[in-house]
Design a protein around this nucleic acid. Structure first.
Lengths: 145, 145
DNA sequence: GTCTGATCGTCAGTAGTACTGACGATCAGA
DNA sequence: TCTGATCGTCAGTACTACTGACGATCAGAC
């Protein structure tokens, strides 16, 4: 029985199922919470990066988020059209765009931070703060390899 | 500071990021492990259900997996074309299709079970068996709500 | 200074995923 | 027998995120 972990009949025991559906559920909750601000959880990820490590190039933000740089283009297009971020050429390297939050963008981020926090707390309500920390730590370890 | 959980600068602390990328990593590992068998982790999920609760209708399988019944059609089309499953009308309710593993399908499932188990073990190698159980339990609780 | 290869942002095209809405066939209850 | 609901199917759609190619720009070798 060298394959114990995957022999159970209940698909809800399979790690892949659990991880995928936990992701879907959390995303649905946070998207709903952020909707009134005109952004979703994906946008919020970018705002978070920009709020804490600006000025950053598009590529830096994309790499931090783990998405492709071509995907970043469309994401920023939307945020720029909404007046949340600005793009301007980096004077020290004109291949790059410096991406920054606007004044309105910072206000949106602050409101989004509260909304996101509430949604995440609601998602985690069923488990203890201790289990939450443990979950974060475990996932971080699994990703570091 | 009622929003503590989401105020950290590092996006890798955000639960959404951690869950999403853990899912992606595990899926990549298991897809690679199953590739030689001609199936992916999504197919394996269906096989697992069929192996343990047949005979089942397409809808039952879809609901167990948490996917739409229209998505199930295409998934089974592929598996049927590969000779892994068969569909036939349920004699007791001819709206339904009874879906079963073929002999070859059972052999594929057994091989897939081993391959999947190895990939999942590799994914979990960095954490203790105890932490693995804890992770499963936590995710299950979060999904039950 | 000039060349060469690499980098960045952009865009068109593409592939994968999973949905909505509609349909015919079938079932169950009034 | 009728009526509303269910199941599988299919076309169409929306979304996501990729690959590949392009021009502009940079950095290092010479």
């Amino acid at each position: 029985m060298s394959t114990e972990p995957s022999t159970t009949a209940d698909p809800h025991e399979v790690l892949g199922y659990l991880l995928k559906h936990a992701t879907l559920k959390l995303t649905a909750l946070t998207d709903a919470a952020l909707e009134q601000l005109g952004i979703d959880s994906k946008d919020f990820g970018a705002l978070r990066v920009l709020a804490h490590q600006e000025p950053a190039s598009q590529l830096q933000v994309a790499q931090t988020l783990g998405i492709d740089r071509t995907t970043m283009v469309a994401l920023l297009d939307v945020l720029e059209r909404k007046g949340i971020v600005t793009r301007r050429p980096d004077p020290t390297d004109r291949r790059r765009n410096v991406v920054e939050l606007t004044e309105q963008g910072m206000q949106t981020y602050e409101a989004a931070r509260v909304a996101y926090g509430k949604a995440e707390s609601a998602f985690l309500a069923a488990i203890s703060p201790n289990a939450t920390d443990q979950l974060r730590q475990t996932l971080r370890t699994l990703l570091e390899n």
